[in-house]
Every structure is written in structure tokens, then in C-alpha cells.
């Protein structure tokens, strides 16, 4: 049992520890819908990966990165309202992805695993990818923490104080794209934004500084990953949704419990 569960558990913990702090930025900047769009586009990335016979994880990472940079530019232009733009890209890429995958029905694409994740399928090779990407994302996040925070609080002020705002915005998009491409394995593209949003939102209840919120988000995410896997192991429920169920339960408990101190 240990060797079956070890890699999935470690993988889940690593991803949750990364989505937590990054998710804090998603919450602070109201980018939940942006996360959804990238997640849906990841399915198109998978489909294109199949068509072009390249490594699927690589295909998803590349496609998400491309889209993130494209979105960063388009949103800056303000041609149409951001949520409309995201809605169009989100659903059209999901639809195109589904259509392409259905055309390749001779090849065994596990659609359910794509949509809802397959945590228990994580092996040692996946772990290499996951640890590498998570380490990179966390290192970049730590290095640029102050300017990213400044840019989140007030982009104009950050610009005048010498922060390269275009770079910060694109950087954050790219980090989110990377994490989504990796976390897809765990909870699947339909539930992925929840790993970004829910632990961070729960953490808000416990934090008085941005750093505390990031730490709590990571911890609560790890707790949800562990709890979800336990739930999945004991009751034979699907792993990805189980993780989200635990994360949501934590959220509701924290918000219903009387807050200590002010408010």
C-alpha cells in the first residue's frame, strides 16, 4: 500500500504547496476566471499533443504558456471586456479540444482522467516533472515576491516606484499556466482552479499578512490533498474530487467558525 500511495501523496502535497501561495495572488487579483480559461485550454493542449505526437505534459505546458502570454497582451489592449474574452477562449478551447479528442477515438485518451484528474496514476517519472516544475515556480515566486505584491496592490504606484509592471503581469500569468499544466494530473482541468482558489480563500481567515496567507494556503492545500487521498483510499471515491471536497469542507468550517479577534 505504501508504494502505491507514496508517489501520489508526495505529488499531491507538492502541487498543493505550490498552488497555495500562487492561489493567493489569484484571489487577490480576482483571476479565478483566468485560471479556468487556462485550465480549459489545457485540454486543447492535450489534443494538440496527441495530434503532433509530442509528450503530453510538455504539450500542455507549452500551450498554456502560449495562451498566457497571448492573454496578457490581449487584456492589456482592452479590445473587449476581459471576462468576455476569457469566456470565449475558455469555452471555445474546451470545445475544440473535446472535438479533436473524439476524432482520435482509436487512441486511448482517458477523457475522465483529463477532466477530473487521476491522482493515483502518478508514477516516479511524473514526480520528476512535478518536483522540478514546483521548485521552479516556488523559487520564482519567492524571488519576485515583493514586486509582485506591490504590483498587485497598485500597478500605477509600483510602476512609478520602478517595478516593471508588464513583466510582473506576464510572469504571474506564466506561473499560473505552469502550475495548471502540472496540477491537471491531480484534480483534472474542470476542478483545477479550486486548488488555486479554495485553500487561499480559507487562508484569508487565518492570516494577517500576505506571507501568512500564502503559508496557510500551502498548509491547507496539503491537508486537503492528504485528506482527499485518504477519503479516496477508504471509500474508493475519485481522488481529484475528494481533494476538492476536503478543501471546500475546510473553507466552510473556517468561515462558519466564529473568527478570533476583529471583524
Amino acid at each position: 500500500m505504501i508504494d502505491i500511495l507514496l508517489w501520489p501523496w508526495l505529488g499531491g502535497m507538492l502541487i498543493a504547496a505550490t498552488t497555495g501561495p500562487l492561489g493567493a495572488f489569484v484571489v487577490w487579483r480576482r483571476m479565478a476566471y483566468f485560471g479556468d480559461t487556462l485550465a480549459h485550454a489545457a485540454l486543447l493542449g492535450v489534443a494538440l499533443g496527441w495530434m503532433l505526437h509530442i509528450n503530453l505534459t510538455l504539450a500542455v505546458v507549452l500551450f498554456c504558456l502560449l495562451l498566457a502570454i497571448l492573454l496578457s497582451a490581449l487584456m492589456y489592449q482592452r479590445i473587449i471586456a476581459t471576462d468576455t474574452l476569457l469566456g470565449i477562449l475558455s469555452h471555445s478551447s474546451l470545445a475544440v479540444g473535446l472535438v479533436i479528442i473524439s476524432l482520435f477515438n482509436n487512441q486511448p485518451v482517458d477523457l475522465m482522467a483529463m477532466l477530473f484528474g487521476d491522482l493515483l496514476a502518478i508514477g516516479s517519472e511524473d514526480m520528476l516533472w512535478i518536483s522540478l516544475s514546483c521548485a521552479i515556480v516556488l523559487a520564482i515566486l519567492a524571488y519576485y515576491w515583493q514586486p509582485l505584491l506591490n504590483h498587485t496592490i497598485c500597478p500605477e504606484l509600483a510602476h512609478v516606484e520602478g517595478v516593471n509592471t508588464n513583466f510582473m503581469r506576464t510572469l504571474l500569468f506564466v506561473l499560473i499556466a505552469m502550475v495548471i499544466a502540472i496540477a491537471m494530473k491531480i484534480v483534472g482541468i474542470l476542478l483545477i482552479t479550486s486548488l488555486l482558489i479554495i485553500p487561499a480563500a480559507s487562508a484569508r481567515r487565518l492570516a494577517t499578512t500576505p506571507e501568512q496567507m500564502a503559508m496557510w494556503a500551502a498548509l491547507l492545500g496539503c491537508f486537503a490533498a492528504t485528506g482527499g487521498m485518504a477519503l479516496s483510499w477508504i471509500y474508493d471515491t475519485p481522488a481529484g474530487p475528494s481533494v476538492v471536497v476536503i478543501a471546500s469542507a475546510v473553507f466552510f468550517i473556517l468561515y462558519l467558525a466564529p473568527a478570533k479577534g476583529r471583524r
Partner: peptide, 23 residues
């Protein structure tokens, strides 16, 4: 620069001291 106003998300825990330190 002093902007006209600050639109700060309620989800971002930030004390006045910390806000000043960031500058």
C-alpha cells in the same frame, strides 16, 4: 506618486505598516 485612490481587495491582508514598508 500619490494615486487618487487605492482599490485594495478585502482578501489581501495588509497592515498600514506593511504597506509603507513595501514602498
Amino acid at each position: 506618486y500619490m494615486p487618487q485612490k487605492l482599490n485594495l481587495e478585502p482578501t489581501l491582508p495588509l497592515t498600514v505598516q506593511r504597506f509603507l514598508d513595501l514602498g
